[in-house]
Write a protein that binds this DNA or RNA. Sequence first.
DNA 1: ATATCAATCAAGCGATAACTTGAATTATAG
DNA 2: CTATAATTCAAGTTATCGCTTGATTGATAT
Lengths: 221, 221
Amino acid sequence: MSISPKIALLEEYALVARALSAPARLSLLEQLAQGERGVEALAEKTGLNIANCSQHLQQLRRAALVTSRRDGKAVIYRLTDAKTLELMDLLRIVAERNLAQVERILRGLSGGEDAPEAVSRADLAARIAEGSVTVLDVRPADEFAAGHIPGALNTTLTELEQIMPELDKSAEIIAYCRGPYCVYAHQAVAALRKHGFSARRLEGGLPEWREDGRPVLSSHL
Amino acid sequence: MSISPKIALLEEYALVARALSAPARLSLLEQLAQGERGVEALAEKTGLNIANCSQHLQQLRRAALVTSRRDGKAVIYRLTDAKTLELMDLLRIVAERNLAQVERILRGLSGGEDAPEAVSRADLAARIAEGSVTVLDVRPADEFAAGHIPGALNTTLTELEQIMPELDKSAEIIAYCRGPYCVYAHQAVAALRKHGFSARRLEGGLPEWREDGRPVLSSHL
DNA sequence: ATATCAATCAAGCGATAACTTGAATTATAG
DNA sequence: CTATAATTCAAGTTATCGCTTGATTGATAT
């Protein structure tokens, strides 16, 4: 005898939520938000064992949050559509608004200082146009190469201190990274402010910037 | 040694998703979307054991999707804010758009027939104003009493066939129930159409209608 | 205070999930 | 056709989840 359609529906909705309920899978989704990737590349970026990574990706696929295609012997995964991003974002918003623990972690990232408000993407676009900001891309070099905001400077957190002397102290620095789940920009802003720079974080990251239809530059194809 | 803040953040986001990953909890949220309730009432409506129900509610509270207050010896739960509804809705949208299984279930609810498009709440409001529709509330009587669309007729699915003769065949019937997770309206529309009525489903349910700021009538306070 | 009712806590059971390891597929290259 | 590389499958272990049962807490009413 079949279970009630009501329960069957709820099971399906729950399946989608369950796919989002493991940190490892959220991490994979964050990577995929940057662009499509193969299993091996995703495993390396997220620090997962390859078989394990593949299994997580299959769960995401079952929940229809990602899709895959074959390219030779590789299988390339990507986000199904913008709704996946919306879900991730809403999840984060609810957690940030209501969970004390999240606030504590974010405060910790900012070195105890009060972090300034993030800059909206529209504001950044306007300020880039008038040339009054330095844009800092705080992601690994390969992700920067795959696509970044035109005119952005690329640095990792560890290199940041070394290149600080070269930065223009008179212009405000806007840092961004992979997106709302990524903490690099938070940490970069904290480090810069500690050294006397005027710095803020971009709201969202490259995926959101791209989603807005704003220009993205790739170093090599 | 503490884990990285990055992972800690993802754990928190995952906690919210996990709270949404059990059909029982989605069912509780659906009930709470109707209005605040005590544990016992929720247990009865969802068919859960009381202790079990309490535990599920606590998980929802840990994820900040619901809040609770004491009222005498009772503990009253309610949705934290509209974001919780948004999350539930987005979950449903992703599942409906991308999961074949969901489509199959929904088609089954409509008795194999092609179900007509749902009516938007704005359209219904306009048509109520001009008096050209019969509004049907397909929820249990107690929920109807607690709040319903003014002018709506209340019936359960089982009683529907008996009251059909009293219904105006010339006016279109718009059925609604608890909301997008609820299947009563789907089933009522299917039954009505099978009997030759012109019937459609309201998009969303009473919680969404109320959220829009539209009038809601309670039979007793 | 004691009794009562609503809700929560605590312990135990079966089922499921995450991760690891090693084998099996699938598509290309030689 | 065989070899190789990328991915998936399968099996096993440990941990966690959902549910049940019985005891406990917290707030009223007698």
